[in-house]
Design a protein around this nucleic acid. Structure first.
Lengths: 234, 234
DNA sequence: CGCAAATTGCGATCACCGTTCGCAATTAAG
DNA sequence: CTTAATTGCGAACGGTGATCGCAATTTGCG
């Protein structure tokens, strides 16, 4: 019968506990930063599945096995990528109301995910605890400093807002951004299925003339809805 | 230079457009359903990464290549799995207020994701358009039948509620449910990092005594917050 | 200065993955 | 009974993450 459900396998966040380089031995020809940015460009241009150890190694002109001198696993590489793009947030002095600050962060997050289409799925799936990611969290929590809420509740609120953001952006990217082709087949199948008469409410909701192209406002509306409900003052 | 970002590759939702079996030829020794349920058990017991073509084939006593007579790709297999567990929803007659019906669905969804820990990440990542998934959507949208909202807005609301649910459950599973081991390392790293003095608000929010063990109520609170903000009447 | 210890780069290799191909066996239709 | 379609599947292909062992390099110590 052996083990249960997946051995520990090693935590990707260990990258942040390990010193990048020790004092002795030959100087490394590369760096975590260089590797991460190379991986990010590859993902931007060819999709996340193209980010393999070999591909990234080739991208920086190194042998495949050499990458493991900088990163202990493929998961750690992804961790580096996530933290790299988390570095694209810009933090203005914490002025203004809590809701406004959070909306600003969410808007920036949306922009970042649009720049890096592979990001949203990862954010919805993995924690990401690098310094830049933590800086984002710090900014979001500190926006709630004046709000009367227990600490865990603040964290929960931030987490849910982030999830909402990622999910919304992923819908955006799946609908319009993607190449046709696969989407066309799906639409065809959906049309057929909705015509069967099962799912009447669904059919009506989907056929109704949608005011498309208002992503911007829809996004703001969704987030405002949640924050208002959560008691975050405007 | 070649292509851009990932060729069409084939849409997983094609499974639903294809007849399970044609009229001629030998009788298949297996079925989509059997394969799907086998795959689900494997994922339940050994994790999603254990669900490989070979492993599933072995699970039903078949050769690896034989699976491709029932499913065109690994993605389609996953699609079958998702729709299979979506079949665990129970729909009561559409009575009661909109918010209550939606909360009921969300609660069921949470239970299902607890039963199948591999589900939440998938739901956050893929569409899933099988009959059972569509049935769920139909139920959710029909709960909004009496609410004065344009069709697309209803869909948006349902999508966001589902995302919120999946994200919340994933947090639950990552925190408590998972084996220690990896989590222990992470906690250690977090403690170290928060002691550095950067991230002061984050540190305070995390160190504050959390009222843990109230997942149930927290869950209801999060969803109610959103639905209230979205204007869904209680 | 020179030597020992640690570290780097990396070719070769392993185990596994998704997927394709070709073929024997089976079945329904004409 | 023949024909055509379909099934099951062993074998193989290309790609993946990861490990190992070794030559080359660099630091620090005596």
């Amino acid at each position: 019968m052996k083990g249960g459900a997946g051995l520990p396998d090693h935590d990707p966040t260990d990258v942040w506990r390990r010193p990048e380089r020790s004092t002795v031995g030959p100087k490394p020809e590369h760096s975590r930063n260089g590797i991460a940015t190379a991986a990010v460009s590859i993902a931007d241009e060819e999709g996340l599945t193209a980010v393999s150890i070999r591909r990234v190694a080739a991208g920086i002109g190194a042998g495949a096995a050499s990458l493991y001198r900088y990163v202990k696993s493929h998961d750690e590489l992804v961790e580096l990528m996530m933290d790299t793009v988390a570095g694209e947030y810009r933090y203005t002095g914490g002025s203004g109301h809590a809701r406004g600050q959070l909306l600003n962060l969410a808007h920036q997050g949306r922009d970042i995910m649009h720049r890096h289409p592979w990001l949203a799925p990862l954010l919805l799936t993995r924690p990401s605890m690098g310094p830049n990611s933590l800086r984002y969290l710090e900014a979001a929590v500190s926006a709630l400093a004046t709000v009367d809420l227990p600490g865990p509740a603040k964290l929960q609120t931030v987490a849910m807002m982030s999830a909402l953001t990622s999910a919304f952006v992923q819908n955006e990217l799946a609908s319009g951004g993607g190449r046709m082709g696969a989407a066309a087949d799906r639409v065809l199948y959906l049309a057929e299925t909705l015509n069967t008469g099962d799912y009447p409410h669904l059919a009506e909701a989907m056929t109704e003339r949608g005011e498309t192209g208002h992503s911007e406002e829809q996004f703001a509306a969704v987030l405002t809805n949640y924050l208002a409900g959560a008691g975050i003052p405007a």
